[in-house]
Design a protein around this nucleic acid. Sequence first.
DNA 1: GTCTATACAGAGATAGAC
DNA 2: GTCTATCTCTGTATAGAC
Lengths: 211, 211
Amino acid sequence: MVRITKGPEERRQEIVTTARRLFESEGYEKVTMQRIVEEVGIAKGTVFYYFESKEELLKAVVEDIIEQDYTRKQALVAATGGNGLDKIRTIMQLDSMALKYPKILESLHEISNASMHTQLLAVMVNNEAHLYETLISQGCDEGIFQTDHPLECAEFMIAAMQFLTDTGIYPWDESDLMRRVKAFPSLVEAILKAKPGSFQFMVQGRDWDIK
Amino acid sequence: MVRITKGPEERRQEIVTTARRLFESEGYEKVTMQRIVEEVGIAKGTVFYYFESKEELLKAVVEDIIEQDYTRKQALVAATGGNGLDKIRTIMQLDSMALKYPKILESLHEISNASMHTQLLAVMVNNEAHLYETLISQGCDEGIFQTDHPLECAEFMIAAMQFLTDTGIYPWDESDLMRRVKAFPSLVEAILKAKPGSFQFMVQGRDWDIK
DNA sequence: GTCTATACAGAGATAGAC
DNA sequence: GTCTATCTCTGTATAGAC
């Protein structure tokens, strides 16, 4: 058989990218190592040369997703002007966009995806919380928010909102989703002691109202 | 070989109980069907007669856990007097007890357990939220809380608190856990617009302060 | 250092006898 | 309703070619 040698970083990234695509579209448990190596066009042993196990590969994929997402958001925040609320609005709206598109297949409620989703969620909470913390602190300085625990506020809100709306984690009813998203603004405003209506943007421009 | 026939419900429950014990102590993914049937003392085919797949068996186990937990809490609430806050305190303290003991083995942070934990968490949120909703509404009537969304408040708080403190879901640092739990009272008070200090009991009588 | 090819124990699942 | 026997295919390990 033809032997193709590539630089180690290139090959590694190739595996991660392919695995990510397959995991995202068909679920971690359903995708076999066999399938991955066929798609990449390498031998089975090669994957195990780069990653000790399937779980290690999953970790790498999760890091890949998080890193990409985080970088994009941080750049966006840096490029955005305005007060803390304006900046939070910017990244929150980015989230709602990102949530819609690539989840079509995922939302086939598979328990099989749970390991991947949970890990993703946990790492995301860790990362995003620090981003939000900065913006919440800024808002406190500007007098539009008020809290003694900006980081914990951020973690609390992100964890709850992600968990309660991600249909990849659990097949929530559509009516449950609507109900929850409609309540989010007042909940967030209560936590941050923000002016009523500040977070109303969270339910606007969405299909929640129409359905 | 000896052939033992039992009533279908008895046998089913026997399988669920054994599977639950093994899943809880060693993790869902690590426990094989082979292991389960050996422990129960039946043939492999029998399990597949009762449950279509290993995942179906997991569902049954999760329901078993939730049901037991929910029944106990509901009875406790019914037996407790006082206002909404008193009752919430009662079940919240029950939680912290339940969390401590049977998790010793689980807290070996295994990705393998994620599917089970996530499912458990989601079903628990669904169930407990309704319990808390009643108590929050009662508190609103009594003038000690204030919210337009008692159910969504409940879901939000339960999801966030469980997710951020369950080391079976993700191996959080101990310092993260302490930090978060210490912030919970003021976050919950903000959401429910309760009197400052109302939920201070959440951090008392715990080991958080000592460590 | 990179990679292929192949081997293998053990997993979840199934068919059909009892 | 329960058993045994058996199937397929998985994740993983490894020997050795380039």
